[in-house]
């Protein structure tokens, strides 16, 4: 029972990071219909920005916020300068450009920061060995609680933005029918740039939390979280923000349970494998994810 609770709790905490990143993928996909393959690498670069701000003496919280601002600028800048231009030339071009960014950002981070010894990344939350409370026998580390709370809070804010604000309405309108959105006078360019910006800012926050958990930064920081996030978006349905969040949490919990209860068979190495295979099976029965609509066809 305690073990079960422990796995669920740990799973929800990690899952909320996947959910945050997955939500970023979904926001971009709904806006432009593209998979941003570089989502994880953009988050990684922003985490290095955060680290750099912190290294220059700013408080960590401020650094993370600045990292998110930098993320927004990076995401929006990429959309304006590359994505929308190449989208005019060829549909597949956007995917290729996002792969190019995946490679480019990864290499750039290595070139700028990689020659330092592995950097210490402080956590946003208390993370000493004894920073935890015991509830029903399960260990609730403050850091895990903090991650979960912050991630869920940000996602809650985003959902408010989508549902309650004029700008959110514009984002939903663009996702639903870009042509009509332009006709009613929505500045679609601004909306798309913001979508990319918001996604990258969320990535920056997840990066800071993943980095804090790992304790150090490398250019590989976000690769595995990105895979989990794309798995979550796939499972939830690529055009369903709510689906992405639920799926992210479910995958977090599921992999903890699988790894926890079948350590001999699955253990650490195959955790990711379990998640991926599950998704494959789900897609067989629901080819557009659990909560997605069937109209998603583009790459």
């Amino acid at each position: 029972m305690e073990r079960l609770l422990q796995y669920i709790f740990d799973g929800l905490s990690l899952g909320s990071i996947y959910a945050l990143l997955a939500l970023g993928l979904v926001v971009v996909f709904r806006g432009t219909g593209h998979l941003n393959f570089a989502q994880g690498e953009m988050a990684m670069i922003c985490t290095f920005f955060t680290w750099q701000f912190h290294a220059w003496g700013l408080p960590l919280v401020v650094s993370v916020l600045l990292g998110m601002v930098a993320g927004f600028a990076l995401g929006a800048g990429v959309e304006v300068s590359l994505i929308r231009r190449v989208a005019k030339k060829s549909e597949a071009g956007v995917f290729v450009v996002s792969i190019a960014m995946f490679l480019g950002f990864n290499s750039l981070a290595g070139m700028i920061w990689g020659n330092l010894p592995p950097e210490e990344m402080p956590s946003l939350f208390p993370d000493e060995p004894d920073d935890f409370v015991k509830i029903f026998g399960a260990v609730w580390r403050y850091e895990y609680i903090g991650i979960m709370v912050v991630a869920l809070l940000l996602m809650g804010l985003l959902f408010l933005l989508f549902a309650r604000t004029k700008f959110g309405l514009a984002m939903r309108a663009v996702a639903s029918n870009p042509e009509s959105a332009r006709l009613v006078g929505i500045p679609t360019g601004l909306v798309l740039a913001s979508s990319w910006g918001i996604a990258a800012a969320m990535g920056a926050l997840s990066g800071a939390m993943v980095g804090g958990l790992a304790g150090e930064l490398t250019s590989l920081l976000m690769f595995t979280p990105f895979i989990y996030a794309s798995a979550s978006a796939t499972l939830g349905g690529f055009d369903s923000p709510g689906g992405a969040v639920i799926a992210g949490l479910a995958i977090g919990v599921g992999e903890q349970l699988a790894a926890g209860y079948a350590p001999g068979w699955i253990g650490q190495e195959l955790r990711l494998g379990v998640a991926l295979v599950t998704i494959f099976v789900v897609l067989l029965f629901k080819p557009s994810g659990l909560f997605g609509s069937a109209k998603v066809e583009r790459v």
Binding site: A170, R172, A173, E179, A181
Partner: peptide, 19 residues
């Protein structure tokens, strides 16, 4: 027609008033 198919009727009209 070009309605926003996955938005509610009311949201469609609110989007019309975007400007």
């Amino acid at each position: 027609r070009g309605t926003f198919a996955d938005l509610t009727v009311e949201d469609n009209m609110m989007a019309g008033a975007y400007v």
